[in-house]
Amino acid sequence: MNLFSAIGDFSSFFFRSVFISWHLKTARHRILNQVYEVGIGSLPIILIIAAFVGLVSIVQTSYQIAGTMPRFILGATVGRMVMIELGPILTALMVSGRCASSMAAEIGTMRVTEQIDALETMAIDPYRFLSLPRIMGTFIALPVLTVIAEFDSLLVSGAYAHFFLDVPFGVFNYGLTHFFYAKEFFGGLVKALFFSVVIATSGCYFGFKVRGGAREVGRAATYAVVTASVLVLMLDFLVALVIFG
């Protein structure tokens, strides 16, 4: 399969999974299940990662501007870094590493054990039954995780500046709020929406494409994570170009 046919196959899989007739009443439980898996399941690791993102940002920014700029620039710089780039990107990469692989492995195992064939035999559309809830669930969970991660990062970085860098929280907060643009905040969340779609689609696609046995299932999980990560970074550039370019 060459690159173009792979892109075409991936796109048709996405449209086949999303633009399909479905009822909220029947799909609700499966969607909630995926929100639980992706959102609540990833929450602890996201909180830890976001805290360290905040710490690294404040330490690096403090080192870069030490003695050359006013201290409130710390708040402005860290705030923008977290809102525009670090919050959405690192959350998406963590979720793709944790969830895209599990989706690919789960659906791949169903494929090799012929459970998907059984669904088709029972006239249940496997795309509607397996793909759609995962894409919808990630679409709901990832922006929520991104907002929580950004809040966590900013609180931790502000606290670190206050206690260890001799920058009062009021000064940090002044920089953070005075240079705040709603466009940057919402731009980061729009990115998260796009990322959620490619992460879930990637996990489901490689799960559906498994042919063979356990080895292929493992390979599908790897492909899903790698593809999701690459697509997340590509989309980051494209969305940044449209919103901030």
């Binding site: 709901i140 907002v147 809040f151 900013l154 953070l176 709020t177 005075h178």
Partner: peptide
């Protein structure tokens, strides 16, 4: 899941009002 989504919405509102001063 309901609590998770509601927490997300609350954090969103708090973060936005905080950042907008």
């Amino acid at each position: 899941v309901g609590i998770f989504v509601i927490i997300g919405i609350i954090v969103f509102i708090v973060l936005y009002t905080w950042l907008s001063g």
